[in-house]
């Protein structure tokens, strides 16, 4: 456990510089900033009522925050936790120690999740607070945080190996987010279990009040998934375990040439 914690600690320290954290915080905070502008812009006008504020918040949550901010922030962080080790030639330091490869992979995925959720979680909390103020209820606050955490974990599971295996991981990751999440997985609902966005949304939907689906097209946002935090947690954990097992196999078999 000491070694696992050490890898997590050093990884976070190495990959989350203050500059990067601030930049990603700005990105994660952008839905909250946009919502604040919306609140200020519609204050005292007929366009501003609880229904429209609620409708706007759900659209931004599902369509912007969960669909763009969470994957992009997680992509940038997760692709660097092992990718930077490869690029900086520090992998040999890590793998020439008496540590199981699965532990390295699991520690790296954990570090990616913690780092990314530190950013996405703050963004979700800021957004959730503003929505709560605007719609007079905080019933969506916890579902948003849980959905964000689960989405972040699922994306981290995908992007950690991507960052290690591919040189243009960010570009390919972005292509994945837009083509897979919004194209292929949307067109084939049976693939929803492989869509971290939909897994996160299903967790949120399972915890949110019933009126959530009045505003979200469930066939697009959930595909074949049923709302429920428990199922979403299990799916995310399966993705994390598969990712760590795959990365462990890669670390065991792949050469580490200079």
């Amino acid at each position: 456990m000491k070694r696992f914690a050490a890898i997590v600690r050093v990884t976070i320290r190495q990959t989350l510089s203050l500059k990067r954290a601030l930049g990603l915080m700005l990105l994660a905070g952008s839905p909250a900033a946009m919502y604040l502008l919306y609140m200020i812009g519609t204050r005292g006008t007929s366009a501003r009522n609880i229904e429209t504020a609620f409708e706007t918040s759900i659209g931004m949550t599902v369509g912007v925050f969960m669909n763009i901010v969470v994957p992009v922030v997680t992509l940038i962080i997760a692709s660097s936790v092992l990718g930077d080790e490869r690029r900086d030639n520090t992998m040999s330091f890590l793998v020439l120690r008496p540590i199981r490869r699965y532990m390295i992979a699991a520690a790296k995925t954990t570090a990616a999740f913690l780092e990314a959720f530190l950013i996405t979680g703050v963004g979700a909390a800021a957004f959730g607070i503003l929505v709560g103020i605007a719609v007079d209820t905080f019933a969506y606050f916890v579902p948003l945080l849980v959905g964000t955490a689960i989405g972040t974990a699922a994306y981290a599971a995908l992007f950690v190996p991507l960052g290690y295996l591919l040189k243009r991981a960010t570009l390919i990751g972005l292509t994945y987010v837009f083509i897979w999440e919004n194209g292929i997985a949307a067109a084939v609902p049976a693939l929803a279990s492989l869509s971290p966005w939909r897994i996160g949304v299903s967790a949120m939907a399972g915890l949110a009040p019933d009126d959530f689906f009045d505003l979200v097209p469930s066939d697009f946002a959930l595909g074949s998934l049923t709302p429920g935090a428990g199922g979403a947690v299990i799916k995310a954990l399966i993705l994390v375990a598969l990712s760590a097992a795959f990365m462990a196999a890669v670390l065991r078999r792949r050469d580490l040439a200079t």
């Binding site: 320290r13 190495q14 900086d88 030639n89 520090t90 020439l96 120690r97 490869r101």
Partner: peptide, 19 residues
């Protein structure tokens, strides 16, 4: 992997965490 308790390696490349 336990064999690595017996091995120390200094690679030619940097292999250092600058922070």
């Amino acid at each position: 992997v336990d064999r690595y308790r017996n091995i120390g390696f200094v690679p030619e490349e940097s292999a250092l965490y600058n922070t």
